[in-house]
Design a protein around this nucleic acid. Sequence first.
RNA 1: GCCCCGGUAGCUCAGCAGGAUAGAGCAACUGCCUCCUAAGCAGUAGGUCACCCGUUCGAAUCGGGUCCGGGGUACCA
Length: 547
Amino acid sequence: MTITTFKDYLRNQILTTLEELSMPTRDVHLEKSKIPEYGDLSSNIALTLAKEVKGSPLDLAERIKENLHLSPDYCSAVTISPPGFLNFIYSPKYIRKQLITLLKTGDSYGKTDVGKGKCALVEFVSANPTGPLTVGHGRQAVLGDTVSNILEWHDYDVAREYYFNDAGRQMRLLGESVYVRYMESLGEKMTLPEGGYQGNYIRDIANHIYKIHHDTLKEQPDSPVFKETAEKIIFEDIKSTLEKLGIYFDGFVNEKTFYENQAIDQVISRLRRKNLAYNLDGAVWLKTTDFGKSQDTVLIKRTGEPTYRLPDIAYHEDKIKRGFDLIVDIFGSDHKDTYPDVISALQCLNYRTDHIQVLIHQFVTLKQKGVKVSMSTRKATFVTLDDLIEIVGADVVRYFFLMRNMKSHLNFDMDLAMKESEENPVYYLQYAHARICNILKYGKEVGIPSDVTADFTLLKEPSELNLIKELIYFPEITKQILDSLEPQIISNYLQDLATLFHKFYTECRVVTEDISLSVARIGLVSGVKTVLASSLEILGISRPERM
RNA sequence: GCCCCGGUAGCUCAGCAGGAUAGAGCAACUGCCUCCUAAGCAGUAGGUCACCCGUUCGAAUCGGGUCCGGGGUACCA
């Protein structure tokens, strides 16, 4: 019985008791008790019922307790604490059984088969190839990859997808900027176009082109070579950066596809038939006012060029048609206002959209020397993700982004990041893992067997029991991250688990003269290692055996 | 103007399906390595949980308002 089913069991028992007492029933809320005096799990049910039943919460709690029949195999005691909480204490037998389950299940502990036979698509990063990835993109990259990991953990077949557009104004500007730098390397003085790309990488690309074509493109500012070479080089650069973070995509989808296969035209004509698209002032509009917006939005500009919204609809239609059971989109907060239009449009085209989940994350604001810098790829006022990885390492980058709630703004202070790389919270977690590896190695050397049938009743110290209780909670955590797709839940859990381990380590020596105790503790410690490793794996952080 | 996020220790942030003494890391200070790794542990100090009002037995958490920061509201993505 995992912790989750244990809670369900408690809930049901309480509900049954309430019925027996002819009391009103309601959702029973159970939470991990904050301090040991309050047991292991607590419920406020008596407090919430007090008003309706018109009794004192303490009396109510007492009555519930008296009539509650819990199996001593699971729950050894129920206590009441003011102002009326019911506290439940795990039976030692239950705790031991869970530890044994963990040791027997190993790497699969905390996994479910919720996603068995189902496939999911996760779209993220999706930056156009106009420049290197910035620290800002890093947040989304790490988030998307970790969300994918979470789904995979629960047995989903996950496809990571990157959507991009190599047509359009920005890419045209990119090509023009490269041409200017190319001419400069030929000794010609030129100025960048309005809003052109100022980064040094443009010069590198220009030099690269020069090495191949020399001055033969001098008179050909419109040559596709500039844009195409830039795109190719930049994409390679982006991929290599992502690779450093352990992120690999299963597919890259080009927006162009939906122009070429006429998906866009079909979307337009179908929207027209539904009276949701119309012509005005030479543009084609989407009737977003029908979806509750204060004004309609343009789908095709007067120039004949679609806005990004139209191919977005076609792209999502394509995603749906590919038959995924779950579609996750990860967007920055700048998309907050646009994706509902896409969803609404799809619904109007008679698609089911309840399997589309959109995760919006807030931006990273960058601080350098205490001053806020607005990040712009065009103006080259950004710190590249690559530089950041170089400075602090991939593990730190990943953890830095994952320990925060995606809804929170993130103030990224470069100076602090560098300083913290010396003494970083991520090492705290990894160190716990490395310490255990070393203990297990040592235990093996002195001949302590690793045995699931060890006598775990010997584990009685508070630091031991607290550690096991935290391990018991792991399946609940993996359930929570699946429901919420919020990686920081697991970061917080890891932090707590590592703390309890380090405490245990200082208080209890694992390998001693006492063989039986040593075997039991080796078991405990390897259970901790399994859960640490699983958690780190989900976060995509390495699990060093030595540090 | 309107919409969406956020405002918690000096700094970066957890906690927020209402709960019992508000946490961590960094920074500061004090202890602890003849013993499986001190990237650790124990402790001190640091808070009107932006502000006001409300709901409640109980509010950092829920509702309303104010202020500050970010994003959106574009025929930019």
